[in-house]
Amino acid sequence: MNAIQTNQLTRSFGNLKAVDRLTLSVPRGTVFGFLGPNGSGKTTTIRLLLGLLDPDDGQAQVLGYDTREQADEVRARCGALLEHHGLYERLSAAENLDYYGRIWHMSKVERGSRIRELLEPLGLYERREEPIGRWSRGMKQKLAVARTLMHHPELVFLDEPTAGLDPVASAVLREDLAMLAEQEGVTIFLTTHNLAEADKLCNQVAVINHGQLLALGSPADLRSRTSAPRLYVSGQGFTSQMIEGLRANALVNSVRQSNGQVVIDLTDLSRSHEVVTQLVAAGIQIDEVRKEKVDLEDVFLRLVEEERRGEE
């Protein structure tokens, strides 16, 4: 059974379609990245999945429960770190976690041991009695992540957990998230526009823009699906006659010169050695041949750009 299953999920605010016929499934035990630019519908999707908002159309099941009819059951089994960390700054770290433990009916002993279990690996246990108002943003985010895991949820929603953190704090939190995800074995639904984060943490990613799903798959899948098979060749002896010779090759889609390099788009990257052999045979002194490496950011930008062109 999937942890999350949505079918044509739709929610509008006035004329704005925040989530538009979203159909996706999130397998249990995965770290699922939900990528999209600001205002693309990520937060609204989480709110719909938690039953905090009702959809206008379509339906969603979370852990087998309908989000419209059984929202209480959904929330009872999930943890959520939403747009803001939502911690009580006048209370101490331990009091914050204890409150959430009580909400989930954990016994006093359970709460105490769980607080230790969660805060120790995050390096916060020794400071658990401090009011958190003066803590750094990074420490508060870590505590908020611990809070979402306090009651051993089956599914955790994390809405841009590293937003607003400096690069060092983001990297630390990412490592902590990866460690906690592995240690706890929960399904994580993570929204972010930090693509390096998604690349590092997620088994599956979906790209959303204007409420619509643009792509779904593993980061590697998306890279291969959207990357152009492209070679960058640097060297001496390129002539226009040789370039024309390349264009005549059935393997070559296009050739152009850019910044002292020759950029060759191929039909099949696995046969790139044939093109390199042709260049060597034509007397080119090759300094470097590089296959294009596409990261998730390129994939994301390409998908968003394609969507924009489609709309035009």
């Binding site: 938690l50 905090l52 209480d72 929330r75 009872a76 999930c78 959520a80 770190l81 939403l82 747009e83 803001h84 960390h85 939502g86 911690l87 009580y88 700054e89 959430y100 909400i103 989930w104 809070r147």
Partner: peptide, 14 residues
């Protein structure tokens, strides 16, 4: 005002 309401509403509390 302190942005703690949404986290509370996302819990199992009725």
């Amino acid at each position: 005002e302190r942005h703690t309401l949404e986290a509370l509403l996302a819990t199992r509390l009725s």
